[in-house]
Design a protein around this nucleic acid. Structure first.
Length: 879
RNA sequence: GGGUGUGUAGCUCAGGUGGUUAGAGCGUUACGUUGACAUCGUAGAGGUCGCAAGUUCGAGUCUUGCCACUCCCA
């Protein structure tokens, strides 16, 4: 017996454990069924499930469960990402609590500590994923730093190096002074702020009283200036070109050069050039062969090339201004809106810095990655995202992949003492190569830099499936994977890199489709963030409403190309939906509606049963169609509407007279049909609400198979004919209910109803379903009107037939007149519309015949109704 | 500055190829202890579909312009 109340806590976790121990998430490698595979976007090991994850993983699980039930060979490949900076940060923070820095430990011990930490607390998010119901094959869980994936990283790296796609270069890069590492362009966040613009002047060499006026937001960088640029079209200043300016304070001479980077209209028209600390200036420097002077230490304090060595930039800026003021060179300071780059993880100001770094030749790799999207080998859903992708890929810059961190894949690069580079997968191979090259034994030191986390994530689609083992069964079966599901903000970080790396290594796309979803925002539509304090913890939501409710919410809200606003009331609504289903199942249980073996739904005789069978098949088809095209909300709403609106609101109510009646044959058939529909509901709802459906599946009957592996019905024949009679009945009942409400008829008043203008078939139906109509519309009786309508009858119209209810003494006929007048007005309005259309020669000529016919039909129907209403009005005119 | 979206009921949002009286949930109003369910049922109110032109027999849907906002990239 089912419990009286739906209580998800009682069974959700238990059910998940059983699935997992039974191996239900594992693919069947012996089958030759179509393969369906999703690789999980690996969460950071440091991660804690947030609503964005909940959305992302719910959508994937829906697809996975659906395809598993379609009888395909399904793999959802799970794993986590080592998340270089994020993880190192977490572990360093822990160490700091004990007053230890990573340098105290040294590299090796620190890395040990990270692994230890990972062992202890790195599994949190995977546990949470289980709580959500994610049916990943955990036996295949991977980690971007595990042995297999590390081997893949080394292999690719060496191959790319040898192909000239990875190279070392001294370039200006984004320097994060907190972690003391380079980061990629993508990890830099540009923030708008109001800063200051400083105006001051440099003396000119050999000119007593002439100055060149400078405007800058960063005066402290002047010690790195190696030129002042002026446009050659700048009439006021061009006479200075070729002369030297004197850098104040340190009295170094720098040339005044002609370069269009200096816009005559902006600022003072003259720009100080600091090639080692500004991306634009770097380009100017290259055009003019200017020297580069680095003025910063790795921690972003000023170095010995300045008079303010050891000071941070802010303090140095103050000192510089003070000095300039002392020298009488400072002119003014103004507020100035500007954009400042920050590290996305560290939150500190990013400094452009000249360093030796390693780069991937992304522009070259991008070509194939662009081509396969152009040809449709990989499709974005929604399609509009391919624009974003192309935009980025066609303007892609070399990708800086080296990080001066400790936690990550150490680059397989070795140097000899003279700096010759050897790149091999192992130290032995590197040693051998080096020895061979020099013809003697040489000493090698390994590159200390590690790789950008996204380098290993870029291999995820094939490295998790077994690559570099080309014979891996999983790789052969599941690559390319079927679909990738991810948020749009990760297109550049991940999708782009996966596309490039996969095309390079596998010569094929990593996935056939990329489904891109939006962000989960708070109830007001603001971005969720810890600092705003508006985050909602999915675990808490699951605790309160059950995982099924949260999942259904995510599915029902997911419409392509739009963000989702969190809504507790809505989640509560889907919990209510689960309760509703639970109670419907209990109703079945109480009425002994148990599944009947070999029950053939196509053979039912009772009209209600025929009707619900057709509706159930229709709903199934809708869910399938919508899931096939990633229309999650439409799919969810199809089930919702069927379960609540069709099955509970109508079918259950309509079968009550049968169940409580004495026609045994009809009763048996109805019980069996009820059970069949209930099973069908469990099947088509399972991808969305796996827990409650499984709980009911297991409790309502002894089964031959598990719901999770039950076959999804396909290619069913739907008997649309059989649905019509009941649709008419529903219409009649609704019409009478409306009438009762509008006339304020007491709920308890049992009324008689008469039908007029009904066809023979309609009358037959009404006779057949009289008990249903009477019970649901609270009538005493319904029958065909014999003779003329009496003047005390209230009239309403349902479809083409007229329903009359005698109400002498019960009703206020003035109110009835008013109601009919209202109805008449509406009819007149519609009729005017039809007439206008149909009298328009253009419409009749050009619109498709079908549309014109339909319009005519509506017109005649409305006309007929109008006559009826007018007759009714005339009839009660004197009451 | 370049690009991309969005604007529909009080709120949050649906409305693949243009075609009934524009839908849902929540909220709201009235009624209801109808033998699964008050985590419920029945009925209702509520919309100039951002604004203005255009294409079309017909526009929430297509085109153009404008306004407001979101996001991405400089």
């Amino acid at each position: 017996m089912l419990d009286k109340n739906y209580n998800p806590k009682d069974f959700e976790e238990k059910i998940y454990e059983r699935w997992e121990t039974d191996g239900d998430f594992k693919p069947d490698m012996k089958s030759d069924k179509d393969a369906f595979c999703i690789v999980i976007p690996p969460p950071n090991v440091t991660g804690i499930l947030h609503m964005g994850h909940a959305l992302n993983y719910t959508l994937q699980d829906i697809l996975i469960r659906y395809h598993r039930m379609l009888n395909q060979n399904v793999l959802w490949q799970p794993g986590t990402d080592h998340a270089g900076i994020a993880t190192q940060m977490v572990v360093e923070r822990n160490l700091a609590k004990e007053g230890i820095s990573r340098h105290d430990l040294g590299r090796e011990k620190f890395i040990d500590t990270v692994w230890q930490w990972r062992k202890q607390s790195g599994g949190t998010i995977c546990k949470q994923l289980r709580r959500l119901g994610a049916s990943c094959d955990w036996s295949r869980e991977r980690f971007t730093m595990d042995e297999g994936l590390s081997a893949a990283v080394r292999k690719i790296f060496v191959k790319m190096y040898k192909d000239g796609l990875i190279y070392k270069a001294k370039k200006l890069v984004n320097w994060d002074s907190k972690f003391m590492t380079a980061i990629s362009d993508l990890e830099v966040i540009q923030k708008e702020t109001v800063g200051k613009m400083y105006y001051y002047k440099y003396p000119i060499e050999g000119e007593e009283s002439e100055y060149i006026h400078i405007a800058t937001t960063r005066p402290e960088t002047m010690f790195g200036d190696t030129a002042v640029a002026v446009s050659k079209d700048n009439e006021k200043l061009k006479h200075l070109i070729g002369k030297n300016a004197v850098l104040p304070i340190i009295n170094r001479l720098i040339p005044i050069i002609a370069d269009d980077h200096a816009d005559p209209e902006k600022g003072t028209g003259a720009v100080k050039i600091t090639p080692a600390h500004d991306f634009n200036d770097f380009e100017v420097g290259r055009r003019h062969n200017l020297p580069l002077i680095n003025i910063l230490n790795p921690d972003a304090t000023l170095n010995d090339n300045t008079p303010f060595a050891g000071l941070d930039t802010q303090t140095a800026r103050q000192k510089t201004i003070e000095k300039l003021e002392e020298l009488g060179l400072m002119e003014k300071i103004e507020d100035h809106p500007m954009v400042i780059p920050y590290g996305d993880r560290s939150g500190v100001v990013i400094e452009p810095m000249m360093t030796d770094q390693w780069f991937v030749d992304a522009p070259k790799l991008a070509k194939e990655a662009i081509r396969v999207v152009e040809t449709g080998d990989m499709e974005f859903v929604p399609k509009s995202y391919e624009k974003t992708y192309f935009e980025w890929m066609r303007n892609i810059q070399p990708w800086c992949i080296s990080r001066q961190l400790w936690w990550g894949h150490q680059m397989p690069i070795w140097y000899t003492e003279d700096g010759t580079i050897f790149c091999e997968e192992t130290e032995e191979e590197a040693q051998a190569a080096a020895d061979k090259h020099f013809g003697r034994h040489v000493t090698l030191t390994r590159e200390t830099d590690v790789l950008d986390t996204w380098f290993s994530s870029g291999l995820w689609a094939f490295s998790t499936l077994g690559w570099p083992d080309e014979n891996s069964e999983y790789l052969k079966t599941f690559y390319p994977t079927s679909v990738l599901v991810t948020a749009f903000d990760i297109i550049f970080f991940w999708i782009a890199r996966m596309m490039m790396m996969s095309m390079y290594a596998m010569k094929d796309v990593p996935f056939r489709k990329a489904y891109i979803h939006g962000l989960v925002r708070d109830e007001q539509g603001r971005k969720m963030s810890k600092s705003k304090g508006n985050t909602v913890d999915p675990m808490e939501t699951i605790e309160n409403y059950g995982a099924d409710a949260l999942r259904f919410f995510m599915a029902a809200m997911e419409t392509q190309g739009r963000d989702i606003n969190m809504s507790e009331s809505r989640i509560a609504g889907y919990r209510n939906f689960a309760t509703k289903l639970w109670n419907a199942a209990r109703f079945g249980e109480m009425n002994e509606a148990r599944p009947v073996k070999d029950f053939d739904a196509d053979m039912v005789k009772q009209a209600v049963n025929k009707w619900i069978v057709a509706k159930a098949k229709e709903a199934t088809l809708e869910v399938s169609r919508n899931l096939d095209s990633f229309r999650f909300s439409d799919a969810a709403n199809s089930v919702y509407q069927f379960v609540w609106g069709t099955f509970c609101d109508w079918y259950i109510e309509m079968i009550k007279p049968i169940l409580y009646g004495d026609n045994e044959t009809a009763k048996q058939e109805t019980k069996a049909t009820f059970a069949w529909v209930m099973d069908r509901i469990l099947v088509i709802l399972h991808p969305f609400m796996p827990f409650i459906t499984t709980e009911l599946w297991d409790n309502l009957a002894a089964r031959d198979d598990k719901l999770i592996k039950h076959t999804w019905p396909q290619n069913e024949v739907i008997d649309e004919q059989s649905a019509q009679a009941l649709d008419m009945v529903i219409d009649i009942i609704s019409t009478i209910r409306s009438l009762r409400a509008e006339m304020n008829l007491p709920a308890g008043a049992k009324l008689k109803a008469y039908v007029k203008d009904a066809s023979a078939t309609e009358l037959l139906h009404i006779k057949d379903f009289a008990n249903i109509i009477c019970s649901l519309a609270r009538l005493e009786n319904i029958e065909a009107l014999s003779g003329v309508a009496s003047s005390d009858m209230v009239q309403t119209v349902s479809g083409s037939l007229t329903i009359l209810i005698p109400l002498k003494g019960v009703v206020d006929f003035a109110a009835e007149r008013e109601r009919l007048q209202k109805e008449l007005a509406q009819l007149d309005k519609n009729l005017a519309g039809y007439a206008a259309k149909l009298s328009n020669a253009n419409f009749v000529e050009r619109a498709p015949a079908k549309v014109v016919e339909e319009e005519k039909r509506r017109q005649s129907e409305a006309l007929a109704n109008k006559e009826k209403v007018e007759a009714a009005l005339a009839r009660i005119a004197n009451l």
